[in-house]
Design a protein around this nucleic acid. Structure first.
Lengths: 347, 347
DNA sequence: TTATCACGTTTAAACGATTAAACCTTTTTT
DNA sequence: AAAAAAGGTTTAATCGTTTAAACGTGATAA
């Protein structure tokens, strides 16, 4: 690469010290500097197309104006949508974003944290994988500014921005019950992640508080290792036997996707044979036969607020902020009320 | 943030100069340094949990081990899949990735380039928006290492890694012709981007070289401003009148998606009423009634090779590399041969 | 005995910015 | 006329590394 212009080059060209150039270009000490010299400096800077070296600036100020974003997998629509929102909000405040995918793997997560901190990011947005409590605690001990997004640990007093997961599935089940469904199954992930277990808890409470029995056999926890067959099997199991379910709630976007694939290949008719509530919004739903009722996370708000809170907490002594945003249940044809005749699915 | 350990801290603790510490920790001058001192330094570094400050290192070496990635929109599956592949390959070689979304906007692209260069990224991977030739030329003049991905400019002698776009649609049309379709329409984007116009050219050649007339009325160029209605209308136009098409080829993943949505809402039966070839692979296809024949880009190879080439070209005097990878036509039910009876769509 | 060499380590400049403090002039105040 | 203030600019240290060159010291060679 061709050497870029430095302060020194400008200083030399104008015949002043680098300090003066720095002051002028940063609009400091404005009343002290002669108009004429300032003009000249600005002009030469322009001519030489001066662009400050952020690395040098960062070294001196120990601010990089860069945020680190750790997601599960940037190729996952949830992550990439989040990334986009974070990018925009960061950009609005003059920050750039470095990202990394943890693949839900604690070791990878640790490696990412270390790498990003070595690059001196000013703060971190983390969708923490299961088993990373200690890493997060360490960050906190080091007083690294960070905000957890999507996932968080109830045992840790850290800033986070997440969903009200409990309420999200509670509302979904409640809606199913209101629509006349009585035997509601849940397909979820086998994980210790709080945000997921909360979804199961919401499901369970909704059943019980609405006078329906909670049956363990109606909850299928999948490992996520070979999802497509596992989900297909789970659906089959839930729908067979002497007490088949009439509705299924999925607790993640991937599960929903795999579930719909299975439903399609098993030729199950929605909602007449089975009602379905999906998690998260996906383009893919729009190509599915029946329009899908789903739990919508306020992604935009989540990403934007998380970024704002992080940028805020770059200032010392900012208090911890814990936010659980409410999900919206988007009601469509896949949970058509049993009491009314089915209508054409929405487009 | 708590101050991190620096070379100086270690030097002080051990009672040697920072230079020696640096040499030891970088495994330099190994034969010159006494085993005992080296051991001590390593031990103290470990104890103090020393992590080199990459910013300082970068300033000195003018290498950041960071790559800049400019995509159209990180929230788009094509971009995010690409990002993931780039991330992995970069990581494998010890690089991190900073990204930005151009939204196909030249101004935004320029801003991103400037920002990334100010942060001293070592090189750039760019999916260039239309109208950014001059920006790319400037980069080249500055001898900034970069590789264009997906899009490129035939007029510029730059490194790029893209698809053989011409061949991709040529093959698709050829396949349609072979399957008995004779009146083939194209839905594409109104753009000057070479990779898209090449797709139109491939379509046209395939028709002509197979003895079919090329009719301008069968090519619909959409602005992409309000896609859903526009695509729906284009499909309607193509299928009505005295000479309706019996097949449609889409030239981008978004167009395909919108197209399928329209096809679903217009209750068009595939392939009996219309054959369809989509562009790119998408999860969404899997939820669609009919399995879709589509043009698959070798994303993995593209991202990985592009990254490798970029990293390679960080070394001075690396020659320009221009690569057009072949697409694969994944044949499914939506282009079922007219001469054989339709079978169950693949799952 | 003195020059040469090897060994282990330190010195100090450099990367490109920032910024408090110092330094001249000139002008204003007393 | 001397002191103080204001105006305009420079000096020099600093951030945390890297690295060529120099520096002692003890051993070896001439």
């Amino acid at each position: 690469m061709i050497k870029k212009t430095s302060l020194k080059d400008i200083a030399q060209a104008v015949g002043v010290s680098t300090a003066l150039v720095s002051y002028v270009l940063n609009n400091q000490k404005e009343n002290r500097i002669s108009k004429e010299v300032a003009r000249k400096i600005r002009q030469v800077a322009q001519e030489l197309n001066y662009q400050p070296n952020q690395i040098a600036k960062s070294l001196k100020t120990s601010k990089t104006r860069t945020l680190g974003l750790i997601v599960a997998d940037i190729a996952n629509p949830f992550s990439s949508s989040m990334a986009r929102i974070v990018e925009d909000e960061a950009d609005r405040q003059g920050y750039t974003v470095v990202f990394g995918s943890s693949d839900e793997n604690p070791q990878k997560c640790q490696k990412l944290i270390t790498t990003l901190l070595n690059r001196q990011v000013d703060g971190l947005l983390i969708a923490a994988p299961a088993g990373t409590e200690s890493q997060i605690m360490t960050l906190q001990k080091q007083t690294v500014p960070f905000v957890l997004i999507d996932r968080y640990f109830p045992s840790l007093k850290t800033s986070y921005l997440a969903l009200d997961n409990y309420q999200s599935t509670y509302d979904a089940v409640r809606h199913l019950v209101d629509s006349g469904y009585q035997r509601i199954g849940l397909i979820t992930l086998k994980t210790s992640l709080f945000h997921i277990t909360e979804r199961t808890r919401g499901y369970q409470s909704a059943l019980q508080e609405n006078g329906l029995p909670f049956q363990k056999s109606r909850v299928k926890e999948l490992s996520g290792n070979n999802p497509t067959p596992d989900v297909a099997k789970a659906i089959q199991l839930l729908r067979t036997g002497q007490d088949p379910v009439d509705a299924i709630v999925f607790t993640t976007n991937s599960l929903t996707f795999w579930g719909l694939k299975a439903i399609k290949s098993q030729h199950i008719n929605l909602p007449s044979e089975l009602a379905v509530v999906g998690f998260d919004e996906t383009d893919a739903y729009e190509l599915f036969d029946t329009s899908i009722t789903y739990i919508r996370q306020p992604l935009q708000e989540m990403g934007q607020l998380a970024t704002k809170i992080l940028l805020e907490s770059l200032n010392p002594n900012t208090p911890i902020t814990q936010t659980n945003l409410k999900a919206t249940l988007v009601i469509q044809a896949s949970t058509q009320s049993l009491s009314v005749p089915a209508v054409q699915s929405a487009e």
